[in-house]
Amino acid sequence: MNIFRFAGDMTHLISVLVLLLKIYATKSCSGISLKTQELYALVFLSRYLDLFTNYISLYNTLMKLVFIGSSLAIVWCMRMHHAVKRSYDKEVDTFRHYYLVLACFVLATLVNEQFTLREVCWAFSIYLEAVAILPQLVLLQRSGNVDNLTGQYVFFLGAYRAFYILNWIYRYFTEQYFTRWIACIAGIVQTALYADFFYYYFISWKNNAKLQLPA
């Protein structure tokens, strides 16, 4: 575990906490894409299949439980909680995310480290995570103004994989082997998708103005 990896996990955890805070404090999920949340729940469920069979460390197991638990809780809240689901804007959250799931699954069956259930599911979760933010970014561009907590949520979510890229670069130079090219390429694509969001986030921060995404 190197500092970049730890910073990445903490940034990811912060993004989840910010989203939970927003939903719990405001009892609203306005500006949040349910489809992105569903995709993330699928990402964690398909990636952490070995949660109970392959113990790595207490930290590893705890973090996996937090990510699976929080993503399912958020999906449940947005679908079932009486107050929260009323604030869900399904007319704006129209990205056809099932195509993303299908495309990632097909790609995972073609491009993986080994053609085994666990490796195909792992590659699927890596590819799906790279594009999972698309419904959320499309929703933000449609809804124009972004509230602070939503903006911070997306920012930290984007930043965490950037730290992972630094972690992979660090491991490439410090460890004798490097076999994470699938995660590395998908991670670069994932982080690149946030590029324009980061740009407008930085502009709004510099001008101390409201975050505005061009329609």
């Binding site: 392959n54 790595i56 990510f67 972690n167 082997y177 076999t179």
Partner: peptide, 10 residues
């Protein structure tokens, strides 16, 4: 150790 290295990340 190899397998450990590739799947110890989240």
């Amino acid at each position: 150790a190899k397998d450990q290295g590739t799947k110890d990340e989240l």
